[in-house]
Computed example of a mutant assay.
Amino acid sequence: MNGNRSDSATQASVFGSVHLGYVVVQSNRLSDWRRFGADAIGLHVDALDRDTARFRLDDRACRFLVQRGPAEDVVALGWQIDDHEAFDRIIARVTDRGVPITEATPEQAVLRGVERLWRFAGPKGIVQEIFTVPVTTSEPLRMISTGWVTGEAGMGHVAILSREPEAMRAYYDTVFDSRLSDYIDENISGLKMKIRFLRVNERHHSIAIANIRGVKVDPIRTRVQHINIQSATLDDMLDSFQRVTDLGFRMQWSVGQHTNDRELSYYCMTPSGFELEVGWNPIVVGPELESTWEPTTYQGISIWGHKPVADTVLTKFAQFRQALATVRTPEITVPQLAGGMSR
Rank of each mutant, 00 (worst) to 15 (best):
T95R: 15
I101T: 04
A92F: 07
R112V: 06
W79N: 00
P271L: 03
T132R: 00
L337F: 10
N4I: 11
D59H: 12
V224I: 15
A318F: 05
D235Y: 01
F176S: 09
A338V: 07
D311M: 12
G273M: 11
S265M: 03
P271S: 06
F87M: 10
F15C: 00
A76S: 13
L180T: 09
L77C: 09
A104R: 10
G256V: 12
N2H: 11
A40G: 05
T233H: 04
G190K: 11
K124G: 10
L77M: 15
N281Y: 08
H205R: 03
L191P: 01
A159M: 14
T297C: 09
I220N: 09
A121L: 01
P123F: 06
K316F: 10
E202R: 10
E294Y: 05
I144M: 13
S138E: 15
G98L: 01
L141N: 05
L247R: 10
G98C: 03
T105R: 02
T296P: 00
G286H: 14
I91L: 14
H204M: 07
G69H: 05
A323F: 01
R321D: 05
L247F: 02
V135K: 11
N228I: 10
G286W: 12
M341A: 12
A210C: 13
S27N: 07
T132D: 01
P271G: 14
A86G: 12
A71N: 10
F317D: 11
L30Y: 03
I130V: 06
G69Y: 11
G214K: 01
